[in-house]
Structure formats: C-alpha cells, structure tokens
Design a protein around this nucleic acid. Structure first.
Lengths: 330, 330
DNA sequence: CTGACTTATAAAAACGTTTAACTGCCCCCC
DNA sequence: GGGGGGCAGTTAAACGTTTTTATAAGTCAG
C-alpha cells in the first residue's frame, strides 16, 4: 500500500504538503496541489487510519456493547446507532455480552484499550461500577435502555414506569382485573420500574395487588413452566408481558393450556417488531421508540466527544400504546 | 492515561524491557520483571491498541458488512461471527449496508482504510468487483451467504439448489402439485439457485413448470400485492417462501384472502427463527445452519490471515428440513 | 539597499508501541 | 591473559500520520 511518503516523492513535495492538501490544513499553491492530487490518484493512495488515529488521538470509532444482538429490540437499536454514528463519520465496534457481566467487563476494557472515542453500553446489570472508572479515565460512556442506578453516567432509556402504567391502565379500562405481569428479572431496575408501574396502576384503580402476580421468568432462557404455573394458579383474564420474548412465552403457555385467545385470555406485549404480525390475533403492545432511543444516545455521546461538560443526562422517552387485537374487552 | 514510558520510568527500566515483560519477548530477570509488573499495576497501565496496531501492522479487527442487521438470519450470523472472532482475539467493526450497493462500497473502503485485518461481506449484489481489488491489494475477503459469481474470493454459503429441492420435493411428497415459489429478487444468484432447485424438483416429479409461479416480491420492502395477485391467479395449494421475510408476506396474504391455513393452503418457509413460533400452525421450513456458516466463514478468514494461500474456498453447506405443522398433506 | 515581515514549503518532532541493533559485562577457553 | 560469545539490558529506529518549527525566498517600507 502506498503511504504518504510515496505520494510526496512522486509529487516532488514534502509529506507535510501532501497532508496539507488532503486535510486542507494550510495554503498550498495550485501547482503543487494538483501535483499532489495527481500522485494520489495514480498511486491509489488512501490514508492509513491507524496512523491518523495514533497521531490525532481520535479513532472515529465508537464501542457498542449489547447483551443479545439477536433480540429484535436490540438489533433495532444497533441499526439506528450504527446509522447515526456513520452519518457523523464514526464506525462501530460491536460486542455481544451474551448477558454475561464478566464478559461485558472484559469487552469494555478491550474496547478502551483499542482507544474507542466513546462507549455505548446496554449493560447486563444496573450501572456496573467499572464504567464509572472508565468515564473517570476520560472515556465518555452512555448507558442505554437499562439505565438503573444514579452515578454520573449519561443515560438514555424509556420511562418504564409510565410504559407499564399505560399498558396496565389500558387493560383495566378494557375490563380486566386479574392481570398477570410477566418480567424477566427484578434485578434490573428498569424491570422493577415496570413492575411498579403495573402495581400503582392497579392501585389507582382500586384493584388489590398481590406480588405473586408478578412472575419472574428469567432473562436468558425464560422459563415456560413459571408462566404455566402462574396461569393455572391465578386464572388471569389478561397477561401483560413486559418484554418481547416474554410475549412469545405467554403465547406458548396460552396454547399449551388450550385457552381460547383472546376470548378467554388477553395478551399485551412489549415492543413492536416485524415478526409479531405472525401472531393471530395481532399483538397489542406498549412500544418503545427505538429510533429515538438510538439517535439520542448517539447524539449525547458525540456531544460529549466535542467537549460538552454539562451535567449527566437522564433521558426518559415515553412509550406509546399500539392497540391491535390481542386484548379483548371484558 | 499512562503510557509505556511512564511504566518504564516508575520501574526504573527501559521501555523495551517493559514491552518484553508484557509480551514475553525476551528473557527479563525476575527482579526487573516484578518491578515492571508492579509499576503496571499501580499505574493501571493498559497498552494503547492503536500504537500496537501501527507498529505491528495488525489491528486484530475484522470488518463485517451486512445488508440488514435487523433480519434474524443476518443477526444470527453476526452473533456467531462476533463470537468466533472474539474467541480468537479479534474484534468486529460492524457495518450495515442497508441493501445499498453504493453504501456497501463506501463502507468497505472505510474499513480498509481503518486497516482491518480481514473482511467478511454479505454483499448486496453478486460478487461486487471492488472486493476483488481489495483482495488484490492484500486484504483477505470472504463472501458470506450471497456467494454468486466466481472470482478468486473465498465463499461460504448454503447449497441453495439443494435447499429448494429438498423443500419442493417435500411439498410434492405431501401431495402438492400447485406450488407457488416466492423469491425476493432473481438478481441474486443464490436466489436463482433456489428457483432452479424448485424448478428441477418439479421437473423430476413430472410436474409441468410455469415461470409465472415464481413470484418476485422485492428485497427491501417486499410487495404484498404481488403475492396476493399470484395466489388469486394461480390458486396454489402450497406456497414455498424462499426467505424468512417472505414467509411473513405469505402469512399476511393468506389471511387477507381468508384462506383456511393450513387446510386450504400450505406454507413452507425458509430459516428457523425464534419468532416463527408465534405462527399457528407452527411454520415448517428449510433451515440454514447459521452457526456453521458463521464459524466456517470466520475460520477461513483467520486461516488466510495466518498466511494460508490455498485456492479459494467455495463452501456449500447443506440445509435441513424442519417439519412442523404448516404443510398439510393433500 | 538593507532589515523586518510574509509566505510557501520543507524539515523535524511527536503520537505509543515493537523490535532490531547496540553496549557492557561476565565467563570460558585456548 | 586476551579474545570470542552469550546475556541482560538499553538505545534507537520504525510504523504512517499530523502539526509545530525552521528555512529560504520574496515583498515592502524607510
């Protein structure tokens, strides 16, 4: 590969001049300029990004850590993040933490040592402490989606309380009073917020709340058994699945128990994704603004890169309710 | 951030010694070794990957270009690719070409200028010519999934002819003779191979083939209209959707036309993905070995990085048939 | 016509590593 | 006792840029 030296030699100028022509640094006479451009063309020169990064101390690269790229919610986020980054001249180093906190930690360190300019993390646990250290060392970090905790990191997520409230309130308005609430794990504060939204919506409607109606199914391989049991025990008239994969679980349980759907049991899901249209009746759901989440996270990070030192953000975007056919009036 | 110089100064040695301790280059006496290690710890030193890359001419980074990260087939591939790469000490620079050939080209150049060690591309078109040039310039490239063409690039994909043959043959054995074949676009050679597998399977069974039964729906936003029309015109007893998103389309069309499913019309899909279980009856499909595809592509690329100069690979993995409930015997 | 200022370009330093070349030093053997 | 040969370490070069500093030529005023 041709280097800047080759270009300089061919054009009969110094490397500084080549650099100035290419980066528009200082004035270069038209003759030399065109000589340089000509040499660049004939050699097919393209600057070595690694050398540029070393010298300029900027890699134009963002690190992105996601717990499960296979989940359409996350892959949607990745898509908008990648696009936003690309539009501003950044590339994405993508890592999959596989819902594994230790791996996530290792990945973050690896990314830092690769000198990424910034980090966007959808963490496995609430506000992992190592991230604070990275930020203290000068690496801008923004937390996405799972934004529990309150250190000085920037956070972009959804108003989970509101989301669950809206959904629950909708179910109540449709006449449901026995509402099962499916969660992955209450260890995640955003999930706790959802549970709390559910609880308070019930309370506000004067419906007694029993903690046993909040069913923890697990995050990696959610357990169908738990759902089956809960349905059989509590005989709910509706299920509110607080995660897209839990909707799947709920559907499986409903089928396994031969319940007529949605006549006997209603289902309200989370997230809007292409494949949910396979379900009949079409799934009603609380939908998160994926594009806005990604765009906002990227924007905040890039502003930090430009030196923004305002106090940490805690952006809470509202969710909307998509009413389709899976919730039946009672 | 601490640099190797700081470590050297604190430990009272030269930077070469620090490097030797850290990389196990040459013998270093136990005293100095532990002094260095101590200094590394107290400073929290972590080597600057960019400088390492510049010096060693290796970035330990792979470029990955995918047409649509949101598609579960591709995101599955990304997952296994990322994991395989990580296991061997590589990171992934992920790019989304959005099914846009021009963008794909730009992205590839950007990745090359960032000095990725190798490139894995799921191209938008058959064997884009610029990739040959990149390879000629010394950048190992492997084509994944869409492996049409026959230049000297490595290729890993599925035996599309066999896949479609197997599926069609299955439908025929179930008594179907009017089989609609849905494709995204015949511009992609892997899709043409599928169409050809379909055609020859029909032929082998002595069923006359009419090209009009192969319906092109488009790749980005596949057209429901085309499917509706084809169904109404040809009245097939089965639909074979040669792509996961086309299964979705087929389902929508079937519902729109109020056909009883699977009694009146059977459906055979492509790819196995979590969300297909939302469909009732559960979708039968020809399934691609996603993990094997990703692992093999990564393996071949890494061997090239190690200097493997054997002739180009053209790996064709077989597909399997997953029989579920969406195909009814006739 | 000389000395101070511009100006266009070149030379050199710097970014943080790895690694090849060098330097004393001690040991051993003829 | 002196020269060859590891040995353990240091010095310095190199990777390919950007950017600061230096240099030579030209311009202009006094």
């Amino acid at each position: 590969m041709a280097t800047i030296k080759d270009v300089a030699k061919l054009a009969g100028v110094s490397i500084a001049t080549v650099s100035n022509v290419l980066n528009g640094g200082r004035y270069v006479s038209p003759e030399l300029r065109s000589a340089v451009l000509q040499a660049v063309r004939t050699l097919g020169y393209v600057p070595n990004g690694v050398a540029q990064s070393l010298r300029s101390r900027k890699t134009q690269t963002l690190g992105l850590i996601v717990p499960d790229i296979t989940n359409p919610f996350f892959s949607g986020l990745v898509q908008t993040l990648e696009r936003s980054a690309r539009d501003r001249g950044y590339q994405m180093l993508l890592c999959n933490s596989e819902e594994n906190a230790e791996l996530e930690f290792d990945l973050a360190l690896a990314l830092a040592s690769r000198q990424v300019d910034g980090l966007i993390v959808i963490p496995t646990q609430d506000s992992p402490p190592y991230l604070r250290k990275l930020k203290a060392d000068g690496l801008p970090v923004v937390l996405l989606d799972r934004i529990g905790g309150d250190d000085d990191l920037d956070r972009v997520g959804v108003d989970n309380f509101q989301a669950a409230w809206v959904g629950t309130e909708f179910l109540i308005r449709q006449g449901h009073r026995q509402i099962l609430f499916l969660v992955s794990t209450l260890e995640l504060s955003n999930i706790r917020d959802r549970a709390e939204g559910y609880r308070q919506a019930l309370e506000a409607a004067g419906i007694p709340h029993d903690p046993a109606w909040v069913v923890e199914c697990g995050v990696d391989l959610p357990s169908l058994e738990a759902v089956l049991e809960a349905i059989q025990q509590h005989r709910p008239s509706a299920i509110f699945a607080s995660t897209n994969r839990l909707s799947l679980l709920a559907v499986q349980a409903i089928r396994r128990l031969w319940l007529r759907f949605p006549e006997e049991i209603s289902l309200l899901g989370f997230d809007d994704f292409e494949w949910s249209t396979l379900l009949e009746p079409y799934l009603s759901a609380v939908v998160q603004p994926i594009e806005a989440l990604g765009a906002r996270a990227c924007q905040i990070l890039l502003e930090r890169l430009k030196g923004d030192t305002r106090p940490p953000w805690r952006v809470l975007l509202p969710c909307e309710l998509a009413v389709r056919q899976s919730v039946q009036r009672r």
